[in-house]
Design a protein around this nucleic acid. Structure first.
Length: 433
DNA sequence: TCTGGGGTCCTAGGACCC
DNA sequence: TCTGGGGTCCTAGGACCC
């Protein structure tokens, strides 16, 4: 059996943990650049505020109902997430951190030691609540897809008390009939439209569909696995996370700007800063990257005709995690992309072709001076990460990523509703007085 | 005026090889 | 007009997730 533990309205719940006055009030948390709603309290949901709604569209509602609007504070959410995951890891034989606010637990053999799974799940919820003030719901079922579905029902129906266990064919069939097919894990907009056109409306309808039809119309093997999971045959194992982190196969740092940028100098700064952040993440997971992509975007809702995004990529001669090497290549790519007179609203740096760093190796044909100096470069990066880790991000920066003196950072996004980083910044610690 | 930022997996098709 | 057959590797793009 698998359990899915999902934090309710996670970002809003994190904010409420430090601002009890936010309870019982409609609250929303915004994406970067204060663009869209990415977390809503139940009260905000009840007002009809949609997930992903742009802030400017919901202004009237916000003012009319005095909705509390907050910029996102990822330092806080990341830290709260670690606390939740740390506890969950202590009560299950295996844990997969699926996202910042969700984890799959393997419950194999647990009922023998801990008694009924329902009671076990309730104890988990109570402990997470007590330790972090984060409310959760738990779904338990023989497959991950069914655990997701059980979790959704547990969240939706207060009568279930936050836990639903699907441990018999009858319960599973009942649950499948409750859930619209569009809400099944792995069914997005395209697939949902296709299913509706076939007259399949519920998860139960999909579970009863023929494997051949699903293979043809629902993404081949992906659809078949989904179908089998709905029928109770596991196709997705747990991907256990040692320390709550996974080695990523691609790493990106992309941001919208607070205002459109036209000057090459500003974009050079943005790309340098974004490359440095991406390289930091790369080193943090102990990897090297072979592939580098830079993109520039114009406002996709604006008057400029598509394409709104142009990308440029290259493959590096040797995989690296060196900020200086990556940044100089990124600048070359930027020069290929930038055109005068265009108003850029967003840029990004993506690293791909990722491999483990391992011991430094010399390629057969590259015992060159550059190769010899590589250990020194690695030591430099290590010092840089140590200093930025100790004294705060951006303490040591690329000269190219410094903002023009006396001016605000041109590429920085808006954060007009920020709350303090209570758990990760000395300056912003909770004061009790 | 103002519309996020990360990821995953799979498939098709082209380049290239013998 | 006819113009092999079978591999592998890589990339772009689609669909999905939170």
């Amino acid at each position: 059996m698998y359990a899915l533990v999902d934090c309710n309205n996670f970002y809003v719940s994190c904010e409420r943990a430090f601002q009890p006055a936010l309870h019982q009030r409609p609250v929303v948390v915004l994406s970067n650049n204060d663009g869209c709603v990415i977390s809503r309290s139940a009260e905000a949901k009840a007002l009809g505020i949609r997930m992903g709604a742009p802030l400017f569209q919901i202004r009237p509602l916000v003012e009319q109902h005095q909705v509390k609007v907050l910029s996102s504070n990822y330092a806080l959410y990341g830290d709260m997430s670690r606390r939740v995951m740390h506890y969950l890891a202590s009560v299950a034989p295996e844990l997969e951190v699926y996202s910042i606010d969700e984890a799959f637990l393997s419950l194999h053999g647990l009922a023998r030691h801990f008694g009924p799974l329902e009671a076990y799940a309730q104890r988990c919820r109570a402990q997470v609540q007590q330790r972090t003030h984060i409310p959760t719901c738990v779904g338990i079922a023989p497959t991950k897809t069914l655990a997701k579905l059980a979790n959704r029902l547990a969240k939706q129906d207060p009568a279930l008390g936050g836990v639903l266990v699907l441990d018999s064919p009858a319960r599973r069939q009942w649950a499948l009939a409750q859930v619209p097919v569009a809400e099944v894990w792995g069914i997005g907009r395209q697939h949902a439209a296709r299913l509706h056109a076939q007259g399949l409306a519920s998860a139960a309808d999909l579970a009863a569909a023929s494997e051949g039809w699903v293979r043809r119309h629902l993404g081949g093997v992906v659809g078949v696995r989904l179908l089998r999971e709905l029928r109770g045959y596991p196709c997705h194992r747990l991907a256990p996370s040692e320390d709550g982190t996974l080695a990523r196969q691609s790493i990106a740092h992309t941001r919208s700007f607070g205002r459109p940028l036209t000057e090459l100098a500003d974009l050079r700064g943005a790309v340098a800063a974004f490359t440095a952040r991406a390289a930091e993440k790369l080193r943090a997971q102990g990897s090297l990257a072979h592939g580098l992509t830079v993109f520039l975007s114009q406002n996709r809702f604006g008057p400029a005709p598509p394409p709104h995004t142009r990308t440029a990529s290259l493959t590096l001669p040797t995989a690296t995690s060196n900020t200086l090497a990556l940044a100089s290549h990124a600048q070359l790519l930027l020069h290929r992309l930038w055109q005068p007179g265009l108003r850029y609203t967003k840029a990004g740096v993506l690293l791909a072709g990722i491999e483990p760093a391992g011991p430094p190796q010399l390629g057969l044909f590259e015992a060159s001076p550059a190769a010899v100096s590589r250990p020194q470069a690695a030591a430099l990066m290590q010092r840089l990460d140590q200093l930025n880790g100790r004294f705060g991000p951006g303490t040591i920066r690329l000269a190219a990523a410094l903002p023009p003196p006396g001016r605000p950072v041109p590429w920085e996004g808006l954060r007009q509703h920020r709350t303090p980083a209570r758990t990760t910044s000395w300056d912003e610690l909770w004061e009790i007085g």
